[in-house]
């Protein structure tokens, strides 16, 4: 916002300079402000340096055998392992197959969480009865770590695929439902009144004003949910999985194949980064008006 204003005001500045000569600018209050962009790139540069320094420390520690390679393989070894697992595979599946299994679980869970969470959020936002029913349930579920209810889910639903998806979906439910409710409650009263005064029925107001008003908030909830789901993945894949990134790390750890463990951690982080990026792009495409109104 500030950046845009500055960018727009600059040509004006230049015109004034051209008309009045440089002297008009020498008054102290009209000194041009340093562009904010520079601050961003400074932070970026420091971040890049930090990462490089950490990599260097890691490489050095491995090269000097400060720690046994069993516990701390070198960055190069991890990179080589990445290539091996990507082509040959580990634990009966290639890296891609592990990643796809994990992604499918997370996205099936996301679909389920959206199908339940959005109506629940609407109910909380629209009616005191809905709020009375669902608020305590969500407040109960929200702070429980997935590992805590995992054993119960195994007892109830067995060790099959549905249990893994359920664990992830439960972790995703609260952020989606709560942000939907917040979006519905935050819908502008004037817009709701405008729709009513234009002849919209109660259902039409919900469909054509409340839901679109809540969309930016729902998408934020979706982003938080995807993060929560992805972090729950390893826990979910502790349940007798035969494929998946969490399973891969888990079984590598049992045989002390530390390079696969570290490589798996990086892959999980990289996928999370890509997902976050994609959702931000979806947000920009779907609700370009968010924050501008």
């Amino acid at each position: 916002m500030t950046l845009a204003t500055e960018a727009r005001s600059r040509p004006l500045h230049d015109i004034r300079r051209a008309e009045a000569g440089p002297d008009a600018l020498s008054v102290p209050w009209s000194r041009p402000v340093a562009p904010r962009r520079k601050a961003v790139s400074t932070a970026r540069r420091v971040s890049a340096l930090t990462v490089l320094a950490l990599l260097a420390v890691w490489a050095l520690a491995a090269a000097l055998h400060l720690v046994s390679p069993v516990f701390l393989p070198s960055p190069a070894a991890v990179l080589v392992k990445f290539a091996t697992v990507a082509t040959v595979g580990f634990a009966d599946a290639t890296l891609l197959q592990h990643a796809i299994s994990s992604l499918v679980r997370v996205f099936v869970a996301l679909a389920a969480a959206l199908a339940v969470g959005i109506p629940v959020g609407l109910a909380i936002g629209l009616s005191p009865v809905g709020r009375g029913i669902f608020d305590p349930l969500l407040e109960f579920l929200r702070p429980i770590p997935p590992l805590a209810y995992l054993p119960l889910i195994i007892i109830w639903f067995g060790i099959g695929e549905p249990s893994k998806i359920l664990v992830i979906a439960i972790a995703m439910l609260a952020p989606i439902a709560l942000s939907t409710a917040a979006g519905v409650k935050g819908a502008s009263q004037e817009r709701l009144n405008a729709a009513r005064a234009l002849g919209a029925s109660r259902l039409q107001v919900i469909l054509h004003v409340m839901l679109p008003s809540a969309t930016p908030s729902i998408l934020t909830g979706l982003r938080i949910a995807l993060g929560a789901g992805w972090t729950t993945l390893v826990a979910a894949e502790l349940i007798a999985a035969t494929r998946g990134l969490g399973f891969m790390i888990q079984s590598a750890a049992q045989f002390l194949v530390t390079d696969v463990v570290i490589m798996g951690i990086f892959v999980i982080a990289a996928i999370a980064f890509v997902l976050e990026f994609v959702i931000r792009r979806i947000e920009a495409a779907l609700v370009p008006w968010a924050g501008k109104d």
């Binding site: 004037e190 817009r191 729709a195 679109p212 008003s213 609700v287 501008k292 109104d293």
Partner: peptide, 8 residues
């Protein structure tokens, strides 16, 4: 007063 248009 605040037009209350639907930005979507």
């Amino acid at each position: 007063q605040n037009d209350a248009l639907f930005p979507w």
